[in-house]
Amino acid sequence: MTVKFILSEYVDQAMAEAMYDQLEDHSFVGKIPVCKGVIAFGSTLKECQNELQSTLEDWILLGLKLRHRLPVIDNIDLNMG
C-alpha cells in the first residue's frame, strides 16, 4: 500500500515542469513557468534544483496562507473552493 501526500505530489509535479539554463558565468537559473515568480539560482545544477524546490515550497505555503489562486498542476488542485 502506497501512501501519497497531495502537497508532496504537487511539488514533485511542479518540479517536473522546471526549466534550467546555464548562464555565462557557468552558474544556473531555474524556473517553473506555471508558477509565476518561482525562480532560483545556483552555482551548480544540483544547487539550483535544491534552491528552486525550496523557493517553490515557500511560494506554495505563502499562497495558501494568503489564499492566492494556485495553478492546478497534473490535476492536483490545492485551492480551497
Rank of each mutant, 00 (worst) to 15 (best):
D21Y: 11
Y10F: 10
M15N: 09
S8Y: 02
F5M: 14
L61Q: 15
D21A: 11
K46Q: 14
A16T: 07
G42I: 06
G81Q: 06
F41T: 07
E9W: 11
A18I: 07
D58G: 10
E17N: 01
P33K: 12
E47M: 11
I32W: 00
E57G: 00
I60Q: 05
L61M: 15
G63P: 12
G37L: 04
E17I: 00
S27H: 13
G63A: 12
E47F: 08
L62F: 11
H26M: 07
S43P: 00
I60Y: 05
D12T: 06
L61K: 15
I76Q: 02
A16S: 10
M19L: 15
V11F: 02
E24V: 07
L66Q: 14
D21G: 04
W59E: 04
T55A: 07
G30C: 01
C35L: 03
M80R: 13
K65R: 13
P71C: 15
V34L: 08
S8Q: 06
A40F: 02
L70T: 05
M15E: 00
I76M: 06
N79S: 13
N50W: 13
L66P: 01
L62I: 10
D12Q: 09
D77Q: 05
V72G: 05
N75I: 03
Q49D: 02
M1N: 12
F41L: 11
G37A: 01
L78G: 04
V38Y: 08
N79Y: 14
G30W: 00
K36W: 05
V34T: 12
E57C: 08
Y10T: 01
G37E: 08
E9L: 10
L78T: 01
F5S: 14
L62V: 09
D74L: 08
I76W: 04
T44C: 15
E51R: 03
L45G: 12
Y20E: 15
I60K: 07
Q22I: 14
T2K: 11
G37D: 04
C35G: 08
P33Q: 09
